[in-house]
C-alpha cells in the first residue's frame, strides 16, 4: 500500500537547514498495523505528515497504492487524502466550534455523502464508541478520553484505507489510552491499515511491526514478538 524510495524532507529557514527525513525507505502492506518509535525530533511526525500527504517530500518517491503522490499538487493530494486517509492526533484536534456530531460528520461533507447516510454513519460510530449521549456537546465539554474517541470516530467515518495516528494516547491516562488502543486494534482487525507514531513501547506493541527512527533515518524494523 505504501512504498517510499529515498524519501527526504528538509526544512529551511533563513539561516538554518534541518534534515527531518533522510533517505527513508519503508514499505507497508495493506492490513498492517505499524508503529513508529524514536526519540523526540527524530522525524517520526514528519514521516507521518509526508505519508499523510499533508506535507510534500523534498526528495525521493512516495507510492500510495502504486500511485506516485509525492509530486502531486496540494489540490490533488487533498483529493487522495479525503477519500483514503483518516487522522488521529495526540491533541485530538477537534474543531471547538462544532458539536461532537458535527465534528464526526465533517469529513463526509467534503466527500459529499448524502445527509441521511451521514446521519446513519455518525450515529453508528458514536454508538459503537459509547458517546452517543454526548453528540450535541462541544469538545470542551468532554473528557480527554471522550474527545479522542470522537477524533477516532471522525478518522474512520469515511471508511479510510489507512489511518495515521500521531501519539493517540499521549494526552490520555492509561485507562483511556487502553480504550483508544483497543479501538484501533479492532479497526485493524477489520482490515484497516494503521500507521501509528508513539513514544510508548506498550502502545507500539499493539501493532504487528515497529519501525525505530533516529535523526531522520530508519534504524531498525522489528516484527512484534507475538507475531513471530
Amino acid at each position: 500500500m505504501i512504498k517510499t524510495v529515498q524519501l527526504s524532507k528538509i526544512y529551511r529557514t533563513d539561516e538554518v537547514e534541518t534534515t527531518a527525513l533522510n533517505s527513508v525507505d519503508i514499505e507497508i502492506k495493506q492490513g498492517e498495523f505499524v508503529s513508529v518509535m524514536g526519540p523526540s525530533g527524530c522525524g517520526k511526525s514528519t514521516l507521518l505528515n509526508v505519508l499523510g500527504m499533508i506535507d510534500s517530500p523534498s526528495n525521493g518517491e512516495y507510492f500510495f497504492n502504486e500511485l506516485e503522490v509525492g509530486g502531486l499538487s496540494e489540490r490533488k493530494r487533498s483529493d487522495v487524502r479525503k477519500h483514503n486517509l483518516g487522522f488521529v492526533f495526540q491533541s485530538f484536534n477537534l474543531i471547538d466550534e462544532l458539536t461532537v456530531f458535527e465534528n464526526v460528520e465533517l469529513p463526509m461533507l467534503y466527500t459529499k455523502v448524502p445527509a441521511n447516510e451521514r446521519k446513519k454513519r455518525v450515529e453508528e460510530l458514536l454508538e459503537g464508541m459509547s458517546i452517543m449521549h454526548r453528540k450535541n456537546h462541544f469538545p470542551q465539554q468532554l473528557s480527554g478520553g471522550q474527545q479522542q474517541r470522537v477524533a477516532v470516530a471522525r478518522a474512520v467515518v469515511n471508511k479510510p484505507k489507512l489511518i495515521l495516528a500521531d501519539e493517540p494516547t499521549g494526552n490520555l491516562d492509561s485507562a483511556n489510552g487502553d480504550e483508544v488502543m483497543k479501538i484501533l486494534a479492532d479497526l485493524n482487525s477489520t482490515g484497516t491499515t494503521i500507521l501509528m507514531v508513539t513514544h510508548s513501547q506498550y502502545c507500539a506493541e499493539f501493532g504487528n511491526r515497529i519501525i525505530r527512527m533516529l535523526d531522520g533515518t530508519v534504524v531498525t524494523e522489528n516484527v512484534v514478538k507475538r507475531y513471530l
Binding site: 499523510g52 499533508i54 489540490r75 487533498s78 483529493d79 487524502r81 479525503k82 477519500h83 487522522f87 484536534n93 477537534l94 474543531i95 471547538d96 466550534e97 465533517l106 469529513p107 467534503y110 466527500t111 471522525r154
Partner: peptide, 16 residues
C-alpha cells in the same frame, strides 16, 4: 489556525 488546519487535513479544499 487549528480549525482551518484540521479542515484542510480531513479534505476541505481551498474554495470550501
Amino acid at each position: 489556525t487549528k480549525e482551518v488546519g484540521v479542515r484542510k487535513i480531513i479534505g476541505a479544499g481551498g474554495a470550501q
